[in-house]
Design a protein around this nucleic acid. Structure first.
Length: 493
RNA sequence: GGGCCAUUAGCUCAGUUGGUUAGAGCAUCCGCCUUUUAAGCGGAGUGUCGAAGGUUCGAGUCCUUCAUGGCCCA
């Protein structure tokens, strides 16, 4: 070798060629029968000591020692140290360790023992390359800390930052728990369409796409609500979906353009019934994951013990500002109130949007412990049933935790004529240029006209729930592959 | 959309008031080492300083624009 190459990939390609020259193709093996995992070897050493095991994993550390070497092999649950001695594996096999790199996938067979220093290890009898890594792993001490790269190359983040794996384990366990919880209560899980001729169920800008064969614009769903309620009409008395919804809006620590919602609908109950269900679900979930009803989020200790506190939205607004919601009659009144309170508001906002913003600024941040904010005015709740005693208010609540909305629920409006009027009022806003207002869904109204039983409905933002449960400050931390701007132009990809 | 900050080796980072040939740890490469574990010992620096312009005798450093990300605000 006249010139030594220092390019890591070129060096590794050279090792790959050398292996192949010796008749070893690390990409050839199709299986390796594993008989033990690292975590179990550590947890139950006495049972494993002296036994022969087969373990597979990624090489995370190599410590050569002349005619022997130690390496740390990482499998899904942890790491196990392996000791390879030339006099045990033989010079031919030992020679292959010359081409071993960090990141390679290895299968080893050997006996379980403890080193002089007490490290549970495998004395390797034989080993096999199961894959070769051509690129360097991130720094073993610092891991991968560049936030951009952590999200773009999540596979590396997962390999070198073990706490990331924990977040997604909790995510998986949470969703499994919710499914079990709802199954025990006789809810049926369903799947409703993602691609729709019109996207409704909330106010948000949808993504548009095009169906070639039908030559029509289709929109990605922004909520699950209207289809699940069609199913209530269709006789599913307890129905839910956990699914991705898409909203064409900004990206922040609290917003990702695609995120996961749980929506459930239960016939013959109301928002009080749903409130109890939310309390039971969250209390059971936190206990399942934490072993207690306490949860610490960003330094705040949260208590998930029913019953959760309840705050009347209109009353609390009055306490905070001295203003009654029903005294704000016009958009101008609302903007004047916002100015008086020093709250910056988009000048395009209408009365309801401004009031929503004001509540968001003066009421919601105080709701740290799990709290139901309830009795929303009807003009910001177009799908919720009116409170029979206060027709300008609705039987609605939002659950706030750590100052953030976690759930939204109401007694579902099943009066098709009232629903039509509210949709028509929305269409007026739409004509005035509010492109977050969905178009009128005639088919949904048609379903309601066939008769929907009294129903309680609930939506929970799963990603925000996982943020709480994993003490994650950013929604990107709980989404494996968050939406990112691509590096370079898309054409190059 | 606005403000602030970041971008230097494969990874994590340092880099003085603008000054010679841009540094460290890990990783990598070469040599030694059969119970080490942030293994150790000896040797080697592998770089389009995010991109493009500009100022200057001289730019990683100053200016402008752009790109990506982060934090805060809307």
């Amino acid at each position: 070798m006249a010139e030594e190459s220092f390019d890591p990939r070129a060096v590794r390609l050279g090792k790959l060629q050398a292996l192949r020259a010796r008749g070893v193709n690390p990409y050839q093996p199709t299986r390796f029968d594993v008989t033990a995992h690292s975590a179990d070897l550590h947890a139950n050493y006495e049972e494993w000591e002296g036994r022969t095991v087969r373990v597979a994993g990624r090489v995370m550390a190599i410590r050569t020692h002349g005619r022997a070497m130690f390496l740390d092999l990482a499998d899904e649950e942890g790491k196990i140290q392996c000791h390879i001695r030339e006099d045990i594996v033989g010079p031919e096999l030992f020679g292959l360790t010359e081409y071993l790199d960090l990141g390679d996938i290895l299968g080893v067979e050997g006996t379980v023992f403890k080193t002089r220093r007490g490290e549970i290890s495998i004395e390797v009898q034989t080993f096999e390359y199961l894959s070769k890594s051509l690129l360097d792993l991130p720094d073993k001490r610092h891991g991968l800390t560049n936030i951009d790269l952590r999200y773009r190359q999540r596979y590396l983040d997962l390999l070198v930052n073990p706490e990331v794996r924990r977040v997604f384990d909790i995510r998986s366990r949470t969703i499994t728990f919710i499914r079990q919880f709802l199954a025990e209560r006789h809810f049926t899980e369903v799947e409703t369409p993602v691609l729709l001729p019109l996207a409704g169920g909330t106010e948000a800008r949808p993504f548009a796409t095009h169906h070639n064969a039908l030559d029509m614009t289709l929109y990605l769903r922004i909520a699950l609500e209207l289809h699940l309620k069609r199913l209530i009409v269709g006789g599913f008395d307890r129905v839910y979906e956990i699914g991705r919804v898409f909203r064409n809006e900004g990206v922040s620590t609290k917003h990702n353009p695609e995120f996961t919602m749980l929506e459930l609908y239960q016939a013959y109950t109301d928002y009080e019934g749903i409130m109890r269900l939310v309390e039971d679900l969250l209390a059971a979930l936190v206990r399942h994951l934490q072993g207690s009803s306490e949860l610490t989020y960003q330094g705040q200790v949260l208590h998930f013990a029913p019953p959760f506190a309840r705050v009347d939205m209109v009353e609390r607004l009055w306490e905070k500002t001295g203003v009654r919601w029903e005294d704000i009659h016009s958009t101008a009144d609302a903007h004047a109130l916002a100015r008086k309170l020093g709250i910056a508001v988009d000048p395009q906002f209408d009365r309801a949007q401004v009031m929503d913003k004001i509540v968001g600024s003066v009421v919601e941040p105080d709701l740290v412990q799990p709290t139901f904010l309830w009795h929303h005015p009807v003009d910001i709740s177009p799908l919720a049933k009116r409170d029979p005693h206060h027709p300008h208010l609705t039987e609605r609540f939002e659950l706030f935790v750590a100052g953030r909305e976690l759930a939204n629920a109401f007694s579902e409006l099943n009066d098709p004529l009232d629903q039509r009027e509210r949709f028509l009022a929305q269409q007026e806003q739409r004509r005035q240029g509010n492109d977050e207002v969905p178009p009128l869904d005639e088919d949904f109204l048609n379903a309601l006209e066939h008769g929907m039983p009294p129903t309680g409905g609930l939506g929970i933002g799963i990603d925000r729930l996982i943020m709480l449960l994993t003490d994650s400050p950013s929604i990107k931390d709980v989404i494996l592959f968050p939406t990112m701007r691509p590096l370079g132009s898309v054409d190059e990809l």
